[in-house]
């Protein structure tokens, strides 16, 4: 299946990447190429094969419900691009469209 520009636009929007026209064209061709190669495994009949989520079959890794020290407010905000009143400031929140 080929990747068209609409698919590139959709994926770029989901991934929050502002790509210019050149990048979109290049990306379309590269994705088509790479996914075309990767897509070869689609032809394999793998019904009944369990997916491997982890190389090791570990289960039940958890921690006791204990409080550990938090960062100070200034440490939490140390690398913030913009902060105000102890909070991270962000531009107007809008819905994805």
């Amino acid at each position: 299946m080929g990747i068209d520009r609409a698919a590139v636009d959709h994926v770029a929007r989901l991934a929050r990447l502002a790509l210019d026209d050149d990048e979109r064209d290049r990306m379309r061709a590269e994705l088509d190429d790479i996914l075309g190669h990767a897509g070869r495994i689609q032809a394999l009949d793998l019904d009944g094969v369990e997916p491997t989520l982890h190389p090791l079959p570990l289960v039940n890794a958890s921690r006791p419900d204990e409080i550990t020290p938090s960062l100070s407010q200034s440490d939490a905000l140390r690398s913030a691009p913009e902060a105000e009143d102890g909070r991270f400031r962000v531009p107007r929140i809008i819905e994805d469209a």
Partner: peptide, 27 residues
């Protein structure tokens, strides 16, 4: 109402000074 958060040891509480109950995990 656990003592600590879901995936890290920061305290679970309501309100408080902003960004005082965070750590590398929950940030």
């Amino acid at each position: 109402a656990t003592a600590s958060k879901m995936f890290c040891g920061c305290k679970v509480a309501f309100g408080g000074e902003p960004n005082t109950r965070t750590c590398p995990v929950c940030l």
